[in-house]
Design a protein around this nucleic acid. Structure first.
Length: 540
RNA sequence: GCGCCCGUAGCUCAGCUGGAUAGAGCGCUGCCCUCCGAAGGCAGAGGCCAGGGGUUCGAAUCCCUUCGGGCGCGCCA
């Protein structure tokens, strides 16, 4: 409405320079609630100073639309910007709106856009480790927020259960199995160390006894590989569930093979003329799509490569979703180019987003922990969860931006202080719950909010009003870290409000209005925490 | 060598598609509970946004380049 008035004024005064009117929130609160740089854009064609243009526009808009006075507390030119401050009634209405919407506040109706979101996807050769904790947090939060904003999100995990690593896994398990009877039985050099295969070996031994001890590898290899794979995948699924992340599909690579999907994927490339033969192998001409070298999809012995799986799986996903998002670990930078090329080659240019999460280090007892998988020094995600809890882990993993490196500090994660953002936000929620308990009286169904006029009250109300836009921004920019930041900001604004405004012993109209504001804050905090996979305690 | 990511306060990091005096937490200094949860709040000190060019009314943000740090570059998965 204000934008229209300004646009009309601009069009009337400066017909030559049609410019879109956009608003943004100024960094500094004293500049008001919103600002537009309209005058800068017009100043060029008008050949006048932006400050003058801004003043004229405001005058013109005021005259043409006197009703502006109802929604605006102020509108003034400042350094060429047009700053405006909304009337308190606008923010009071925002609070009333939140109370009416309740837990649905911030959500949007279905937009019909189908999203395929893949993350996690660790090899089925060991337990989940810290890095996966980060991708799971990022992916789980992104999925939840996108769903809230009306996207039809399908969350999936690909199980890489074919190829030589499964053989290696089978041999590793076999060695552990033999070591039960013969501790000197040699462990393969390239085997998977660590002791997580021991209980699996024992359970297999309990089932089959020593019947495989004298059998040739050709007889036991597949059995052992598959047994280990099944156990480890089940373990991973338990960890993921404990971490409060839900998958719609655990896609087995083996099943894609058996269903002939790998062949279909390669055939798709062939029929589009994007492959060639060399030295008996089939190459995908990925350099035509910006990759730095062509990729082999079928070896000279006829077996498909790992990349052929990428071809097939992405083809499947691209066919059934409007948009495919891959969240990959930090050692996959080199994949971005070829995956984008792949999407284009399959006929879906620009339909694939590849997000790479940054490195994860681990700090324990003030020291950086080495996490070489080769050396068997793995710190599992379950261990982390045992020590710091799911809440702290889920939250702390989404605090940094996607690609920036993160050092996870175990000591900080359990610290109950302002250092620890999880507790700060949860404390805010618990504090509100406590106040509401003390208020005892039932909430008025239609509280009068006109008493909300203090700066800290209006600042909080305004922050709460941002929630839907914040969620939309997270979905659009795939930026889950903003949720953590926003939750912290809400808590901070509440704490500031709480210390400057007495709630329970204020006079009745104020008390009612402030209780309503507290309830609205609680709704937003609880929802933000829920989307992040973190509990919102009423007491702590 | 090529590609990708990172470089912002003493530390850990925000800064959304270019906007005003670059923000937050920690740490440091000093304040605020006879009162709803002090796991809180307020104030202060602290920055050549790695360096250098360019684009424009305007750059931490976009482009080029140099220097640092990390990762990736198999008919492995």
């Amino acid at each position: 409405m204000v934008g229209d008035a300004l646009a009309a004024a601009a069009a009337a005064r400066y017909p030559g320079g049609a410019v879109a009117v956009t608003f943004e929130a100024p960094r500094r609160p004293e500049f008001g609630d919103f600002a537009t740089n309209l005058a800068f854009a017009l100043a060029q064609t008008a050949r006048r100073a932006p400050q003058l243009v801004a003043g004229e526009l405001i005058e013109a808009a005021r005259e043409a639309s006197p009703e502006l006075a109802r929604v605006l507390a102020s509108i003034e030119p400042s350094g060429g910007f047009i700053n405006l401050r909304l009337a308190p009634a606008i923010w009071q209405n925002a609070v009333a709106h939140i109370l009416r919407e309740g837990t649905a506040y911030g959500s949007a109706p279905s937009n019909g856009r189908r999203i395929s979101l893949e993350f996690g996807s660790a090899n089925p050769t060991g337990p989940l480790v810290v890095v996966q904790g980060r991708t799971l947090s990022l992916g789980g939060t992104l999925a939840a927020v996108m769903r809230a904003r009306g996207y039809d999100v399908f969350v999936e995990w690909i199980i890489n259960d074919t190829g030589s690593q499964l053989d290696t896994l089978g041999r590793s398990l076999y060695a552990r199995y033999r070591q039960i009877e013969n501790p000197d039985f040699p462990f393969p050099d390239d085997g998977y160390p660590g002791d997580y295969l021991l209980p699996i070996a024992r359970s297999l031994y309990a089932r089959d006894g020593s019947r495989w001890c004298d059998a040739p590898e050709s007889e036991w290899l597949e059995i052992f590989a598959r047994y280990a794979r099944d156990e480890l995948v089940a373990q991973q699924q338990r960890t993921v569930e404990r971490f409060r992340v839900a998958y719609d599909l655990w896609q087995s690579e083996r099943e894609l093979h058996e269903a002939g999907k790998i062949r279909e994927g390669i055939a798709r490339l062939e029929e589009r003329g994007l492959t060639y033969e060399r030295d008996g192998a089939t190459y995908f001409r990925s350099t035509a799509f910006g990759d730095d070298k062509d990729r082999v999809v079928r070896r000279s012995d006829g077996r498909p490569t790992y990349f052929a799986l990428d071809v097939a799986y992405h083809y499947e996903k691209l066919k059934r979703a409007d948009r495919v998002i891959d969240i990959l670990g930090p050692d996959h930078h080199g994949y971005i180019g070829r995956l984008h090329g792949l999407a284009a080659a399959l006929g879906f240019p620009g339909h694939l987003d590849v997000l790479i999460s940054g490195q994860v280090g681990l700090m324990r007892g003030g020291e950086q922990v080495s996490m070489s998988k080769r050396a068997g020094h793995i710190v599992t995600l379950d261990e982390i969860l045992d020590e710091v809890g799911v809440d702290a882990a889920r939250f702390l993993f989404i605090v940094p931006t996607f690609e920036s490196p993160l050092v996870f500090d175990m000591a900080l994660a359990v610290e109950k202080s302002n250092d620890n953002p999880v507790y700060y936000v949860q404390y805010g929620h618990a504090r509100i719950a406590s106040v509401l308990r003390n208020a005892a009286a039932e909430a008025s169904s239609d509280p009068s909010l006109a008493a909300l006029i203090e700066p800290s009250e209006l600042a909080l109300a305004r922050r709460l009003a941002e929630f839907p836009a914040v969620l939309e921004g997270i979905a659009e920019h795939r930026a889950p870290h903003r949720l953590a930041r926003y939750a912290r900001d809400v808590a901070a604004d509440f704490h500031a409000f709480y210390t400057t405004c007495r709630i329970l012993d204020a006079e009745p109209t104020r008390r009612e209005a402030r209780l309503a504001l507290a309830r609205a804050t609680q709704i937003v905090l609880a929802r933000a925490l829920q989307l992040a996979g973190v509990s919102a305690p009423d007491a702590m």
